[in-house]
């Protein structure tokens, strides 16, 4: 048995496997819900209702999707150029750190001046953090999967050190947590009285921005060329190392915005549990979106919906929230399989 590439897959071949992947995910989730002693239909219904069924649920899902859009974009941008950034988690914290450094009174400016500065500084912090693995790769050929992954642990420990030391909030009753942002450094809500903050709008703008860069700019063209065929790109005169460094800067900056948006829009201060693995989940989001920046928004809403919905379902149906993790893992694995089935056919010898 072997796989044979399909030169020109039909529309059906492109659409049916992902649809099958989604259906199979739901079937497997239902079986697990039954194992947990619940009615699968009511469990799925509860997840759907918990994620999108009310204004509160919907806003909760949008808020949860916001950091996932940023990290998903960061991963999608990098993976498109075959630069394997597994370190969105660390870059997220770099953005959050910069937000806290500048936003807790160090710059006593009005919002209109302060927020743009913080946003820019956060982007630079995340970009700088990914610049190091990028240079190690382009100069010395060090595998970026290893460096970016390990940077996550190093940087989280560094944050932990700061929160136990110089950044520790004196009013924090001994908890490892930073001081709160001054009101001018907080992202306002989009609608008066609703919990949704401007970070979500920023995420949508970023997604469109990345899409425009990828499809219309010479940089996006270079990134795609390098990702698809380094040899041909080099022959054509595309400076591969420079493109990889630019890609890293863009990717790191996007991931950092997740940290900024979480601190300035939602939490108001930096703690070690700021991100429940948004950086890693960003990889799932990007893969589900097939690395398409606009698809990232949809995938992030899907993933956030499952998480938020599972939380609420768990309370109502007494099924563990682990179901959400399993659903995501299954969805990802099946999606990868679906992508393969869309491009290859199985031939029996």
């Amino acid at each position: 048995m072997r796989l044979e590439p399909i030169k020109n897959p039909s529309l059906g071949r492109k659409l049916v496997p992902p649809a099958l992947a989604l259906t199979t995910t739901i079937v497997i989730a239902s079986l697990l819900a039954m194992l947990a002693g619940a009615n699968p239909f009511s469990v799925l219904g509860l997840i759907l209702k918990g994620a999108f069924g009310s204004q509160f649920a919907l806003l909760e899902t949008l808020n949860r999707a916001t950091p996932l859009i940023f990290t998903g974009l960061a991963v999608a941008v990098a993976f498109r150029a075959k630069f394997w950034n597994i370190g969105a988690e660390a870059q997220l914290y770099a953005g959050a750190l910069m937000t806290v450094l500048l936003g807790t009174g160090f710059l006593p400016w009005p919002s209109a001046a302060l927020l743009p500065v913080i946003i820019l500084a956060s982007i630079l912090a995340g970009a700088f953090l990914l610049l190091i693995p990028a240079l190690l790769k382009t100069r010395f050929g060090v595998d970026e999967v290893v460096t970016t992954l390990l940077f996550n642990f190093i940087f989280l420990l560094f944050i932990s050190m700061l929160l136990e030391g110089p950044l520790k909030d004196p009013m924090g009753m001994g908890w490892p947590k930073s001081a709160r942002l001054i009101p001018e450094a907080r992202l306002p809500r989009i609608f008066e009285g609703l919990r949704l903050h401007w970070g979500f709008a920023l995420a949508l703008i970023s997604a469109v921005g990345v899409w425009v860069i990828q499809t219309r700019s010479t940089l996006g063209y270079e990134m795609r060329a390098v990702g698809l065929n380094k040899q041909a790109a080099a022959f054509a005169g595309i400076p591969i190392n420079l493109v990889l460094v630019k890609t890293a800067l863009l990717s790191g900056g996007l991931a950092a915005l997740a940290g900024f948006s979480e601190v300035a829009g939602l939490k108001g201060s930096l703690t070690l549990d700021l991100s429940p693995g948004f950086g890693y989940t960003g990889i799932i989001v990007a893969m589900l979106a097939l690395l398409n920046p606009l698809g990232v928004v949809v995938a992030a809403l899907f993933v956030a919906g499952i998480f938020v919905g599972a939380d609420s379902m768990s309370r109502a149906a007494d099924v563990p929230t682990y179901l959400a993790d399993i659903m995501l893992a299954v969805a990802l694995l099946l999606m990868v399989l679906a992508i393969m089935l869309a491009r290859f056919r199985v031939v029996r010898d």
């Binding site: 060329a225 698809l228 065929n229 041909a232």
Partner: peptide, 21 residues
């Protein structure tokens, strides 16, 4: 196949490969 063109790029993208700038 490997050096002259990028297989997944369309003809337009391949046509400007050397002179897109």
């Amino acid at each position: 196949h490997k050096t002259g063109t990028i297989a997944d790029f369309d003809l337009t993208e391949n046509a400007i490969l050397e002179r897109y700038k």
